[in-house]
């Protein structure tokens, strides 16, 4: 059996000074298999982004162990993260933003442009390669963000609510777009969202988290066949049933989170 691509064991993380200490993540344990698409769902402030940032190396856990892509050769970047809106550099053109990971690895300009080209085609922004982010719509910008992460060709992809700032129609289109790009590489993905429908449309498994401090409450396998269409899935009766059952699990947690916020 191949070892898991991501193994999080008892991850705990607290923020703040003594007295006002907030435990964001408490004994969080989860393994993600190679090529698996796993979605973290939970109420706001449940530590799902913290978990993602720990895996990304942007935060360090107070305790617990983390293993990413064991035995991988280190030439490939370990991870690439797709951030929420504003993750693009406003001072770089589309091409330079997409090629950022390559540039930081010392890939020469010519080679960068060549490697980026198919991805620009894939996201349908080849025509906009010399545009700056502010000249693009929100949906286009997040397509650029996706391309930047895929071009870097990392062992695993991390996504932090990449479509949260988009309107419903654009979100649906971007989800399909993401699925299409992802089918081409089948990379391991850890995806944070607060949309149950989004998690159902994208993921192989959904990890439902508790309100603060964040723990794993339940893991729901999603076995819609792939390749999927995020839009068509929504017409599937099983989709609605799953959505409701996950909401039932989440409801108490959302109430708990609200009570914490109002306390």
């Amino acid at each position: 059996m191949t070892p898991p691509k991501i193994r999080m064991q008892g991850l705990t993380k607290a923020f703040g000074e003594r007295g006002k200490r907030v435990v964001a993540l408490d004994d969080f344990t989860l393994s993600v298999a190679d090529g698996e698409f796993v979605c973290l769902v939970g109420p706001s402030g449940c530590g799902k982004t913290t978990a993602l940032r720990i895996v990304a190396g942007l935060e360090t856990a107070d305790s617990g162990t983390l293993e990413v892509a064991p035995g991988a050769d280190r030439k490939q970047p370990q991870n690439a993260m797709v951030f929420q809106e504003h993750g693009l550099f406003p001072w770089m053109t589309v091409v330079d933003n997409v090629a950022y990971g390559l540039e930081m690895r010392g890939v020469r300009k010519r080679a960068r442009r060549e490697q980026v080209e198919p991805f620009l085609e894939m996201i349908g922004l080849a025509r906009f390669r010399h545009h700056y982010p502010r000249q693009l719509s929100g949906g286009m910008r997040q397509r650029v963000s996706l391309a930047r992460a895929f071009v870097a060709d990392p062992e695993i992809l991390l996504m932090d609510e990449p479509f949260a700032a988009l309107d419903a129609q654009n979100t649906l289109m971007l989800q399909d777009e993401l699925l299409r790009i992802w089918e081409g590489s089948r990379k391991t993905v850890l995806y944070v969202t607060h949309g149950i429908d989004e998690a159902l449309a994208l993921g192989d498994r959904i990890v439902v988290m508790t309100a603060q401090p964040g723990r794993v409450k339940a893991i729901v396998p999603v076995d819609f066949p792939r390749p999927r269409s995020a839009a068509e899935l929504r017409g599937d009766p099983k989709f609605g049933a799953l959505q409701l059952s996950i909401w039932r699990m989440l409801e108490d947690e959302v109430r708990a989170a609200r009570a914490q916020a109002e306390a």
């Binding site: 991870n79 690439a80 550099f89 770089m92 930081m104």
Partner: peptide, 24 residues
Amino acid sequence: IYFDVARNYHTPWHKLFLRVILPG
């Protein structure tokens, strides 16, 4: 977030200066 992106892509410090901080 720019510093997060820079760190996530292992930006060396001279690139951080020239490509992120200065233009920003």
